[in-house]
Amino acid sequence: MNDTQLPIWEVFHQEKRGASHVHVGAVHASDEEMALQMAKEQFARRQECVSLWVVREEHVVKTNYDVPFFFARNTDKEYREVYGFPAPLKGKHRE
């Protein structure tokens, strides 16, 4: 098999300023500049978009779903959550 479909780039899409970049998919492209263009064609064709990031698929470092201890929070951690505290005070700004 001597075909190439070119390298894979993961695509992150920002809908508007102030929003986070969100992973939306991937494109095949020869290099970073073409990857950005292909990402624009595929992921900003209809959706609003102000910024795109692309990163080579193999450069994304991932946690492993099969290592359960990594995200374990089994013991009581309510002291670091809002719900671990009484309801907020309802004071007026000024009497």
């Binding site: 098999m1 075909d3 190439t4 479909q5 894979i8 998919g25 991937a26 494109v27 595929q42």
Partner: peptide, 23 residues
């Protein structure tokens, strides 16, 4: 074309390359 692109990508995440699928 866009749908094909998205779908080939979904299949790629299961370990099969687009090259192989097209072949």
């Amino acid at each position: 074309a866009g749908h094909g692109q998205l779908l080939y990508r979904a299949a790629e995440t299961l370990g099969k390359s687009r090259e192989e699928m097209l072949e």
